[in-house]
Nucleic acid binder design. Structure first.
Lengths: 343, 343
DNA sequence: TTGTACGCGTTATCAT
DNA sequence: ATGATAACGCGTACAA
């Protein structure tokens, strides 16, 4: 009863197996496997015969069988808060591009800024026995950490290096970045400063930036920043809502640090529209250095963080671990304060 | 020799198998399988015992074994030109969210706007025996089409409905959208119109928009549009370069249709900076209705296309096919011309 | 360099 | 409602 067909697999898929190729080429299945996996172990002559058979039969290896037999999956799991943010999508793209060179594919999970959803996604993705996880941030549920530890999968955390990673991290210091912004605002003469960003319990990275900002203001003997917390996920329009909330609660505010350029750009454009002069009446600083940041008028002062480098580096760190490096050093990427016209 | 460990799988991963759970619960492996896959076939009593055993042993099913035995993968392959475009990432996010509800994960491929790379990615991803493919556009290499046909995998194509789909499509008419823009520009009195967008051989969707534009201008007895083709992938800054090229080749141009809002926004902001009055001296129309389109001054006239709906719909179409609908009807999503201040 | 034997962990089938 | 048995397609280990 060969050629049994179960499941919802399309007819015709996977019909041709390795042993079909083997018979056709007049070799054993094992030789076919070698031609595919370690061609150098096979004579050029037989290699050619096998390749011909593969082509003639349109053979396509079955990754599931490969995974089961080799106990290794060629899949890496990446969990980010959301794909609808240019920073995260740039990061993921770089990760995909880096891992693709090694024949590894990426499965993405969106946590929607919830550590509980993250935990659930980890559990589900663990069924695919991924070679590793790339997570966002350093904060996870205890159960999520347990799951990861027990499974023994390498983990790389991104976007934050302000506390200890589970395993290793490729990120930057949000506190230092926020501190830089605070120092700049203080130095330029702003005195009543506000912070607009994602809620602390949802976005610990934004929280880090706030902490850094607050510290810098304290060091400059300025009053602590007003903080407006936005519920995630947030839209660009929320930048305007943040601006309004600030102006309502503290009309004397003379500078706002937004935790993302999308918000800052929306607010800046709205100020232009309302005739509120930036930076004279209100200084604005963003975070992320989005494409349009340098093009608006006044150009947006912001912090550049290179999410693509983070995506590539996190993938490389994972590959290093898979290649035997038991404890690769975390990589702290440098952020860069880019001063333009808005602050 | 049980507990053999091969491959690069982390120690401890997958150590607990279904039969371990079975012994612990005092049932057969098959019953454990049923508890996981079709709980309703099992007594509440045994179900509880099995669940307890699962929890006590921290059992995590092995998806590869499941795939091999059931001949079905719970994976859908999505190929897009690039993830670094808010439209594509919004689409992919919606696809992931939709399929996740059915326990299906998504593997992403970036074609970098090359049908050859797309072909190569299709071949690689086919090894995972995906339940279906979601592709961008209707143009693929002959070999890519062969691979898909032979594998028998359902295919949904997105972003274009102007020619016949391989299987079914969830998209919109680029020609109609371009035509709407052309009609608007003609009606508002623009006479020397240019088009700036991705090169035709790389981006057949942008090409469709150009064709529609040209047709509308012809119908309005206007001269054919100047066309500036940008090499993909393009950055936001290329909007400025497109603007410059237009002004150099045809200084009398009084309207530009950009194939993406990112380009249009960059150009519009640059016009503001240069003191070129929009729309009086130069009308600008974008495509995509990005977040900031309504916030710039003047607000950007553009075409709205709802990539998230396309992502969800394409996933639903695929699910319909998997649920037995042999030939689900393609879905033509309506684009919407949004007239604002810039044209 | 190539072939043989076996096991990977699960689901499908069929029997009870 | 539950169990026994046989695949699923491939890689590993070892023999030739």
């Amino acid at each position: 009863m060969r050629r049994r067909r179960f499941g919802n697999a399309p007819a015709g898929a996977g019909v041709v197996t390795m042993s079909d190729v083997a018979s056709r080429a007049g070799v054993s299945a094992q030789t076919v496997s070698r031609v595919i996996g370690r061609p150098e172990m096979v004579t050029e002559e037989t290699r050619k015969r096998v390749h011909d058979a593969i082509r003639e039969l349109n053979y396509i290896p079955n990754e599931a069988a490969r995974n089961l037999a080799s106990n290794s999956s060629r899949v890496v799991a990446v969990i980010i808060p959301t794909l609808s943010s240019s920073a995260f999508s740039a990061q993921v793209k770089a990760t995909i591009d880096t891992l693709e060179l090694r024949g590894i594919s990426v499965v993405i999970g969106n946590s929607e800024y919830s550590v509980l959803r993250e935990e659930q996604i980890i559990q589900t993705l663990l069924e695919r026995r991924p070679m590793g996880f790339i997570l966002t941030g350093l904060h996870h549920t205890p159960r999520a950490k347990d799951l990861l530890r027990q499974s023994g999968v390498p983990v790389v955390e991104t976007w934050d290096t302000d506390t200890a990673p589970l395993d290793c991290a490729a990120g930057f210091s949000n506190i230092a970045a926020g501190h830089d912004v605070g120092s700049l605002l203080a130095a330029r003469g702003s005195r009543r400063i506000a912070f607009v960003g994602g809620a602390a319990h949802q976005d610990s990275r934004a929280n880090g930036r706030f902490i850094g900002l607050a510290k810098a203001l304290e060091e400059a003997d300025l009053p602590p920043p007003l903080r407006i917390e936005l519920v995630l996920p947030m839209s660009t329009q929320d930048g305007i809502s943040g601006l309004d909330q600030v102006m309502q609660k503290a009309p004397m505010t003379d500078a706002i640090f937004f935790s993302a350029d999308s918000l800052a750009l929306a607010a800046l454009l709205e100020c232009n529209r309302r005739g509120l002069r930036v930076p004279e009446q209100l200084a604005i600083c963003g975070f992320g250095d989005f494409d349009l940041a340098s093009l608006v008028t006044p150009a947006l002062t912001t912090v550049k963080i290179q999410p693509d480098v983070m995506g590539r580096t996190s993938a490389e760190l994972l590959l290093a671990r898979l290649d035997g490096d038991d404890k690769p050093a975390s990589v702290i990427l440098q952020h860069q304060l880019i001063r333009r016209g808005s602050a």
